[in-house]
Nucleic acid binder design. Structure first.
Lengths: 121, 121
DNA sequence: TGTACTGGTAACCATACGGTTACCAAAATA
DNA sequence: TATTTTGGTAACCGTATGGTTACCAGTACA
């Protein structure tokens, strides 16, 4: 057996927040809800209307988004009003940005391949 | 009943790729594997060593990453060598970047709150 | 006051996820 | 050839996810 000399540290709260953020973004319905909220706060009913899906399903998606801190809800009378809070996305964007150099380099490699494989046309 | 005037279109392949990408990134083990691969290709054994986790578990994570196109594997003899392919992250980064203006604006609001709530110190 | 509307909760279902152990196949090597 | 090593597959388990229907609570309003 090979005991690792480079153990992985336990997951800290930053990492857990990334779990929640990326997890919340991994569903098309939730991304669609966020896109809708980007043009302003909205009631749950308004949010649910475009979807061929029951209210409870939307409620669950909203709870996932709240859990991730991406949506905040305030109840005013019998109407729940949801609004976007994009701040948790910042850490996610930073995490992904680290890999920008890699995908650019890989696109460069693709370009070179085309240049060599398909010389001056 | 209110039939929506803004139906949600069916999920296209771009959106499905985002599902896979964000889903793959939502697990700390997989993010850790990607970080490891950022410093160069690696065998499955080398990848698995740091984790207090069985090989099949790592294999499953690798399959999720391959499914998302983030890792490519070539088998050379009895050794599998994995390498990073960051290109699918580009679309994810673009998607999140759309919300940059929102989180910056919300951070600005926070700053203003501090300035007003805690005047010249 | 009765009724309709907004939204949430409970219970349920099927499937996916993240992990395990046990086992197998192919390649390298003594 | 026998053995070790690398890695994958199969079967299983508990829990989470994404959806449903049925029902409930509070608010607005005729």
């Amino acid at each position: 057996m090979v005991t690792s000399t480079h153990p992985i540290p336990p997951e800290d709260s930053r990492s857990q927040q990334l779990d929640l953020t990326f997890g919340a973004l991994s569903d098309p319905t939730r991304r669609s809800i966020l896109a809708r909220l980007a043009s302003g706060p909205s009631t749950v009913g308004e949010l649910a209307a475009p979807f061929a899906m029951s209210r409870p399903a939307i409620s669950k998606h909203l709870r996932v988004l709240e859990q991730a801190g991406l949506v905040s809800t305030t109840r005013d009378g019998r109407v729940s009003r949801c609004s976007l809070d994009a701040r948790p996305m910042r850490a996610a964007a930073d995490w992904v940005a680290f890999y920008r150099v890699f995908w650019e380099q890989q696109l460069d490699a693709l370009s070179r391949w085309f240049e060599e494989g398909e010389p001056s046309s």
